[in-house]
Design a protein around this nucleic acid. Structure first.
Length: 421
DNA sequence: CCTTATGACCGC
DNA sequence: AAACGCGGTCATAAGG
């Protein structure tokens, strides 16, 4: 027996290794070798434009500050904002050393002063330029113009993959400029990119694990889950839910998955902890099964000092008995989040193995390129689009039919990673 | 010169 | 003091 096998003697863990992680190795290798085509021309033009725009912002910042300094140095920036311009220092942010210039601090100041507003714009531009626009083309393999990441199979304690050199799991999408970068990820001539992503897989797994009546019923009947939570927590009929209600309810649902605290939710929503506490209490009043499941996971974590995914992947939770409330709090949130995040990771890995197998069996030229936690990206010859779409959606949705709620997968097809229909 | 820590910020 | 899960990268700054 080889030494790596000694680590996985327990039978459930053995199965996770034999049926998920070991067969995934070949799939990941093929994905890394395939790479993804990058339109370096697009990025080169973007680089010049961002250079000009960032430079113009910097000049305005220097002008309004009355001095030149390094905007990228939090120390120098804090000094200018809070000592030279005498903007109000963030409460609770000093923590001894440098004053925080984090985005939420600057956002609070942006309404009353031009400089923090410009700094936020400057940061957005320089972040995207240095991390993506300038860095990615340099990593393209010469000749093919393709970008090859390395997937780390043991990087995340929950069983998720990670991606390095470059990280292709954090390509921007939220801002317009970010989406321009995404548009530089293209398909070879005669091909399209196909992206398939699980819709709210962790909340669906929460429904499965907790068997909460309301949550299970919501997913079985195809309800808008954030609208439902808004309705239940704020006591407003579903039809009366506006965008702000829904936004707050969405943050509550995410908070539940992450291991909610009144403080964390209040920070996320920019509200009082009193109010966020009311939201959380309101949630558990309505989703009683969720409360019971969370309690049961914590009980198990305290008993075994570990938690598991649906398939038996294990995460030790050594700090669950810590007398340090901070450490213990982290351990508790880890304990409740890991079965959700880890089971989602197990499921998409299983789907990847089966899709890779089926593509080969059917002798399709479609290639799996990327995995981004709940999304798979493929490069598909135009002649195979409909067959690939059906195969991928089918395998992802039916990866584990024993779940008590359906898994929903949305599929998009397009010439690049931004423009998907 | 390289390594490490920190602050900030990109994604799911 | 810190404060909601999991990662990776960049620029700065300081240390060996």
């Amino acid at each position: 027996m080889c030494s790596s096998d000694l680590q996985v003697e327990e039978s459930d863990l053995r199965k996770v290794y034999d049926e998920i992680d070991r067969p995934l190795v070949a799939v990941l290798h093929a994905m890394e070798e395939a790479g993804v085509k990058l339109d370096c021309e697009v990025l080169s033009h973007m680089s010049k434009r961002l250079e000009r725009d960032a430079d113009a912002l910097a000049r305005q910042i220097y002008e309004l500050s009355g001095m030149e300094f390094n905007i990228n140095s939090p120390k120098q920036l804090g000094d200018v904002l809070f000592n030279k311009l005498n903007l109000p220092k963030p409460v609770k942010y000093g923590k001894g050393k440098t004053i925080s210039t984090a985005v939420d601090v600057l956002e609070g100041l942006a309404a009353s002063h031009e400089v923090p507003k410009l700094v936020l714009q400057y940061r957005q531009l320089t972040k995207l330029k240095s991390t993506y626009v300038d860095a990615l083309p340099a990593l393209c393999r010469l000749g093919t113009g393709r970008l090859h990441t390395t997937f780390n199979q043991t990087g995340a304690s929950t069983g998720r993959l990670s991606s390095v050199n470059p990280n292709l799991q954090n390509i921007p999408i939220r801002t317009e400029i970010g989406r321009e970068i995404r548009a530089a990820f293209i398909a070879e001539p005669g091909h399209v990119l196909l992206a398939a992503d699980y819709s709210q897989i962790e909340l669906r797994l929460l429904a499965h694990f907790s068997q909460d009546k309301l949550l299970v019923d919501a997913y079985r009947t195809g309800r808008d889950i954030h609208q439902l939570t808004a309705s239940e927590v704020f006591g407003v009929p579903p039809m009366m839910i506006d965008a702000e209600h829904r936004r707050r309810a969405k943050a509550v649902n995410f908070g539940i998955v992450y291991g909610i605290s009144p403080f964390g939710l209040s920070q996320q929503l920019g509200i009082d902890t009193k109010e966020s506490k009311r939201y959380i209490e309101g949630y558990f009043e309505r989703y009683g099964g969720v409360r019971e499941w969370l309690d049961q996971v914590l009980e198990q974590a305290r008993r075994d000092e570990k938690v598991s995914t649906l398939f038996g992947r294990i995460r030790p939770i050594p700090d669950i008995h810590s007398r340090n409330p901070n450490l213990r709090g982290f351990a508790e949130r880890t304990a409740t989040n890991t079965p959700l995040q880890g089971t989602a990771a197990d499921l998409i890995k299983l789907a990847m193995i089966r899709i890779h197998r089926d593509l080969a069996q059917r002798k399709l030229k479609t290639r799996m390129l990327l995995q981004v936690h709940d999304e798979l990206v493929f490069e598909v010859p135009e002649s195979e689009i409909e067959e690939a779409r059906a195969l991928v959606q089918e395998q992802m949705e039916n990866v584990h039919p024993e779940l008590t709620v359906p898994l929903a997968v949305e599929v998009g097809v397009g010439p690049n990673w931004r423009d998907m229909d």
